[in-house]
């Protein structure tokens, strides 16, 4: 240990470069109050700019009356709201976005993920918007319009590869029960129409309450309505200018 060079982090011969002072270092950078005030000012400024002001702008948006006399966005049914909680707790957002980007950005409109792009008004009633940042799977903002069949969704959740060969979505079998057919007089609520080769012999496959709520929520995802002019306009694929 007496040989100082024997340690990998040990002292090395000094070099004296760069010791001449070019400008006098500012006195203020020696004061804790100055640094604290400076760093707090920067983060508070960005809070105001990126959180408070957009929040204020967006919160002023009011629901609008559509041509057909309905209020938009409509309130979600209780079951669909429960379904959104399932969507959130299962973490669907990590593979599915819920936003159709503006002006055909990234080809979102051409791909048919919406007849128009999403606007802030679409989300005004949502306490937790699940916009998402990943598209391992398709965008779901308008899945209810695109795929209105409840049975399709049950099959797809039970085993995605029945309806979508080649899909890498995990099966959500834990959202389904298998009920023995024998001894039942009635067909259970939420029975899934299993295709022959996937059916469970002697059993009904039945969607649980959570699966039914989730599908109800997915079916409620339909934000293709044409908005009145100037109501937080979205672009429609036929009007894209690029």
């Amino acid at each position: 240990m007496s040989d100082t060079r024997s340690h990998p982090d040990g002292p090395r011969p000094d070099d004296d470069d760069g010791r001449q002072v070019w400008l006098t270092p500012p006195e203020s950078m020696q004061h804790s109050l100055f640094i604290a005030a400076g760093v707090l000012a920067t983060v508070i400024a960005s809070y105001v700019g990126l959180v408070a002001i957009p929040n204020w702008q967006v919160n002023r948006l009011e629901p609008v009356m559509l041509d057909n006399g309905e209020t938009y966005p409509a309130e979600r049914s209780e079951l669909a709201q429960k379904g959104k909680d399932v969507y959130i707790d299962l973490g669907c957002v990590y593979c599915h976005s819920q936003q159709v980007r503006q002006n055909d950005f990234g080809g979102d409109l051409s791909r048919g993920w919406g007849m128009r792009s999403s606007v802030p008004l679409d989300y005004t009633r949502e306490e937790t918007p699940v916009l998402g940042t990943m598209r391992t799977g398709p965008d779901l903002r308008n899945i209810g319009g695109r795929q209105p069949s409840r049975q399709w969704h049950y099959l797809h959740l039970y085993n995605p590869r029945i309806t979508s060969p080649g899909s890498t979505m995990p099966p959500f079998r834990f959202l389904f029960d298998t009920v023995p057919i024998e001894g039942r007089t009635n067909v259970p609520v939420g029975r899934v129409d299993m295709p022959e080769e996937h059916s469970v012999p002697g059993h009904y496959v039945v969607a649980t309450d959570r699966a039914r709520a989730l599908v109800e929520y997915l079916l409620s995802l339909d934000h293709d309505q044409t908005l009145p002019e100037n109501a937080n306009r979205g672009t429609d694929p036929e009007q894209v200018d690029r």
Partner: peptide, 14 residues
């Protein structure tokens, strides 16, 4: 209850 709608997304990414 501070933010809802897309403002929550901007807060999230901030």
């Amino acid at each position: 209850t501070g933010a809802s709608g897309v403002a929550e997304a901007t807060a999230n990414w901030w």
